[in-house]
């Protein structure tokens, strides 16, 4: 009770500092939110790109229905294979026709269907790296009845590199943003604590427990962090609404994202004030040990 009362007293008696701290937190959290949005969409993009990665195995023309079934079962049992879809010669032709569109009358001239039947082999996410793809392709290629294998080796390799770089940059950026937020916020809160160091000194003097000394500052930090997080995510949401109309559903935003900003704000307030107050507690509570001798 005392801790809560002191926290509100601290906020209302030091309005300017409270506003400055709030502003700094808000700015940090806004940047953090933008970062989260970019990250979520980056992964979404990666996911979409990876979804397209599959192995296409073209079949020899003279296979019987049974042989095809056996092949399908064999491929399905390979590690990492999620689904095997059979595309018959007829289906391949229709697809081709669709792709040609207006020019499809060219096909009418053909007497036989030149397209082979094939399997579209879909893989699990974690098996989509270049090594695995090559490995799997070789295995499928070696099966009897398979004419040819295609999986866009070059493209897969580039995609893999790009993903690795993007995820790495994103991770480093995330760490930098988080740490610098904590650093900046802690330093701002330190000013608040500095302004009230006499209060800490008196508390230590009259025998307050650590809990009572640190408590009000932690509660203040948490309240400010929570509010700054709420406002920052509100603004992010506003910006999203504004741009969503223009960019269609390219940008994805979830409720979890806004909640994350608020949670991060609260944690930021907690850690920030924790670091700051601890600095002003004399080592550890009262007690100086001369370093003579």
């Amino acid at each position: 009770m005392f801790i809560l009362k002191e926290a509100f007293r601290g906020l209302s008696k030091n309005k300017l500092m409270a506003v400055v701290t709030f502003g700094v937190m808000f700015f940090s959290l806004f940047i953090f939110g933008l970062f989260l949005i970019s990250t979520v969409n980056l992964f979404l993009l990666i996911h979409k790109a990876e979804e397209k990665v599959q192995i296409t195995a073209f079949l020899q023309d003279d296979l019987s229905q049974d042989e095809i079934e056996v092949l399908k079962r064999d491929i399905s049992s390979l590690m990492g294979v999620k689904e095997v879809i059979f595309v018959s010669k007829q289906e391949a032709l229709e697809k081709f026709r669709e792709e040609l569109g207006e020019d499809s009358e060219l096909l009418e001239a053909l007497e036989t269907n030149p397209l082979p039947a094939s399997f579209d082999i879909k893989l699990y996410e974690s098996f989509k790296d270049p090594d695995n793809l090559e490995n799997l392709s070789n295995k499928v290629d070696a099966m009897i009845g398979i004419e040819e294998i295609k999986y866009g080796e070059e493209w897969v390799k580039i995609l893999d590199r790009v993903i690795k770089i993007l995820v790495g940059v994103d991770l480093i950026l995330g760490i930098i943003i988080s740490l610098s937020s904590i650093f900046v916020v802690a330093n701002t809160i330190k000013l608040t604590v500095f302004a009230r160091r006499d209060q800490i000194e008196i508390m230590e003097l009259v025998g307050a427990n650590n809990k009572f000394i640190i408590g009000p500052f932690l509660v203040e930090g948490i309240i400010e962090g929570f509010l700054a997080g709420a406002v920052a995510s509100g603004l992010l949401f506003g910006i999203y609404i504004f741009f969503a109309a223009r960019l269609g559903d390219f940008i994805l935003l979830t409720r979890e994202l806004f909640i994350s900003v608020i949670i991060f704000g609260t944690i930021l307030g907690y850690i920030g004030s924790h670091i700051s107050v601890k600095r002003y507690l004399r080592a550890p509570i009262g007690a100086e040990i001369p370093k003579g001798k």
């Binding site: 230590e204 003097l205 009259v206 025998g207 427990n209 509570i285 009262g286 007690a287």
Partner: peptide, 14 residues
């Protein structure tokens, strides 16, 4: 101990 210092302080006025 660190934790005992507040207890001591409560017995002393300064």
């Amino acid at each position: 101990k660190r934790k005992e210092i507040p207890l001591l302080r409560r017995k002393i006025g300064v």
